[in-house]
């Protein structure tokens, strides 16, 4: 899905978003290059989730543009954005609880016509052992892995992940960070993350958000590893 001839896979320019009369995002601009892991950090209420929901087509912007792979997706609906290869994993970690892991994956496959489960389960082999377990009986980490596996069906160009490690045990976070690195070899990732050491480990680029604005951008690996973005939180 990813068009590797285009350097910038995601371009957001001067984005304004409001909930009714309450302005949430102010002139937000960000770029993500194909193949990189970009992390958005910021305190609660900074507008990170609103930004992701707008990019994913769930909220309408008042002003500004969103381009994915060169296509203007600003006015597309959520399912149309997903069909173009931009997937969004919400923060809630909700899978389809009445369905088994297998049936959840089938839902991902029906939508994308991609039945190559071996490719996506390569990142999370533990899901193979619980393939017939109901979604409602999975741990938080297993649910997150399943959500990522589902989103990777159809070879999306970009996956937005909203706080994927929130509330997870340290060893699960370690597993996920390894998976992120592997996934990013084929798919661009944009992640909202509060876990700063993890951010430093996986990020190629960091955006810091505060009060609905992007207040800083870090591309220098040394600066990221030194957690310099922490000053903006």
């Amino acid at each position: 899905m990813a068009d590797t001839t285009i350097d910038k896979i995601l371009e957001v320019k001067d984005l304004d978003v409001s909930y009714q009369k309450l302005r949430i995002l102010f002139q937000v601009s960000l770029d993500v290059d194909a193949g990189e892991v970009a992390v958005v950090v910021g305190r609660n209420g900074a507008g990170k989730t609103t930004l992701f929901r707008t990019i994913a087509g769930f909220l309408n912007q008042e002003a500004g543009t969103i381009h994915f792979n060169g296509n203007d997706i600003g006015r597309l609906r959520a399912f149309e954005v997903a069909q173009l290869g931009l997937k969004y994993i919400q923060q809630d970690k909700h899978v389809f609880s009445d369905l088994t892991v297998r049936e959840n994956l089938e839902l991902g496959s029906y939508a994308t016509k991609d039945y190559d489960w071996d490719r996506v389960l390569e990142y999370f082999p533990q899901l193979k052992n619980i393939i017939d377990r109901k979604g409602g009986h999975l741990s938080g980490g297993e649910r997150q892995m399943l959500l990522i596996a589902m989103s990777l069906l159809g070879n999306p160009g970009l996956v937005l992940m909203d706080e994927p490690t929130e509330g997870l045990a340290p060893h699960v976070i370690t597993d996920l960070s390894h998976a992120f690195k592997k996934i990013s070899e084929k798919t661009t990732l944009v992640i909202i993350e509060q876990n700063l050491p993890l951010t430093a480990e996986v990020a190629d680029r960091v955006y810091a958000m505060k009060e609905g604005k992007i207040v800083a951008e870090f591309k220098d690996q040394q600066a990221i590893e030194n957690l310099e973005f922490e000053a903006y939180l």
Binding site: A56, K87, Q90, E106, L107, A111
Partner: peptide, 24 residues
């Protein structure tokens, strides 16, 4: 079929279906 699974999944979480690319 996929249709039956889609019906059930929409009942549980319609937003998630949209994010998967379904025209719910």
């Amino acid at each position: 079929s996929a249709l039956g699974s889609s019906f059930r999944a929409i009942r549980v979480n319609e937003s998630k279906m949209k994010f998967l690319g379904y025209d719910t």
